[in-house]
Nucleic acid binder design. Structure first.
Lengths: 196, 196
DNA sequence: CAGAATGTCTAGCAACGCTAGGATCTGCAC
DNA sequence: GTGCAGATCCTAGCGTTGCTAGACATTCTG
């Protein structure tokens, strides 16, 4: 019967997701050090070899995690934008919220393994979408001039805030204040230096 | 004779530096993966045990590297500020130059091991000094209101730019442009949102 | 010169990512 | 049904990692 082939495929896809989900949970609850091939294999109740039949290596699993993450970030941003009057505040808050709620996922997306096409047509659509949401929010608040460059800067500032705060290099108390200040400064300085 | 004790101490201090310098060079030329206890021991021509008689572990060596780095960053900033009319432009450029010229050092200081007191009286003076230089430059360009908070934001943006560009997540071509835009926006938006 | 203290090395532990080789199971032709 | 390809899986193991116990050498003290 022809069903077996597709059955197999579905099983493989299921196991693929099982591996990524397990790795994610392991990283999220016990830190990246706990994500080892042995522990992962034990958790999914297969031998290590199964991991390597699905993924070319550990990096590849992390990459799959990052992809999963990018597909969750954009919807969260959309949701927050819809619920808040200021799109700029909403996207910034959503980005920060995502990073703090999914620490390991954020690492996988924005800190770890580089072999990942970013500002490129080959990069995952969900990532483009996330960037686009940042851009739209910024454009709505400050106009369309130099929008791509300014969005990159917006992202950089968000990313810097999140990572430096997370690693303890910036005091956690003032986190919200810094975020508010970022939004305020971006709203104020339109077009880059022409305001004064 | 009493000299032997101080002789010993001097030898130990020398070897301490030898270890840190070797680790640094190894990381800088061959990447962090090349910094292993065995290779390090081989390079300094001692057994691995000597490493652990000086440092409590690999993290501790990286921490020493970070300290060394923070003592080089501040002077570089000072130098650049003296040579350039705009202190803001100069400090930003110095920070970026430092990061791109000492990749491993930058990692050690701002990306790796967290067990490091930062915004704290226990943190290394050189680090405070570096932050102070960022603050002075920003204050000179935009006034003293909310200066600490705004400096943290300045640093975050710089850090984000550097790390995202270095990891390939932002296109390298526009790096200078983004940096110039950051300086321009900071100069324009004084005091946070009161300009428009 | 004996004994203590200090310093160093060889050898080894447990854990890592990853893989070769053989065992087991599946579906299809006859 | 029987027998054979092909896929799938596991056991066992390679080379490497950070780190350490126990033996050896060297130096200082009385």
């Amino acid at each position: 019967m022809g069903t077996t082939a597709s059955q197999r495929e579905r099983q493989r896809a299921e196991r693929h997701r099982l591996i990524v989900d397990t790795a994610r949970e392991l990283a999220e609850t016990s830190g990246w050090d706990a994500v080892t091939s042995r522990r992962l294999a034990e958790r999914i109740e297969y031998s290590q070899l199964v991991l390597y039949s699905h993924f070319s290596g550990k990096d590849s699993i992390v990459r799959a995690m990052a992809l999963q993450g990018s597909e969750e970030l954009a919807p969260l941003m959309r949701e927050r934008v819809a619920a808040e009057p200021s799109a700029l505040t909403a996207t910034a808050a959503a980005y920060v919220e995502f990073a703090s709620r999914h620490l390991a996922l954020h690492d996988a997306m924005f800190q770890l393994t580089t072999e990942y096409p970013f500002a490129d047509e080959a990069s995952p659509p969900a990532l483009h979408e996330g960037f686009g949401l940042l851009r739209d929010a910024l454009a709505a608040a400050t106009g369309p001039d130099d929008i791509d460059l300014r969005t990159e800067l917006f992202w950089s500032a968000l990313h810097g805030l999140v990572t430096l705060t997370r690693s303890g290099r910036l005091p956690a108390e003032a986190h919200e204040e810094r975020l508010a200040l970022l939004v305020a400064q971006l709203s104020a300085g339109q077009g880059g230096g022409s305001c004064r």
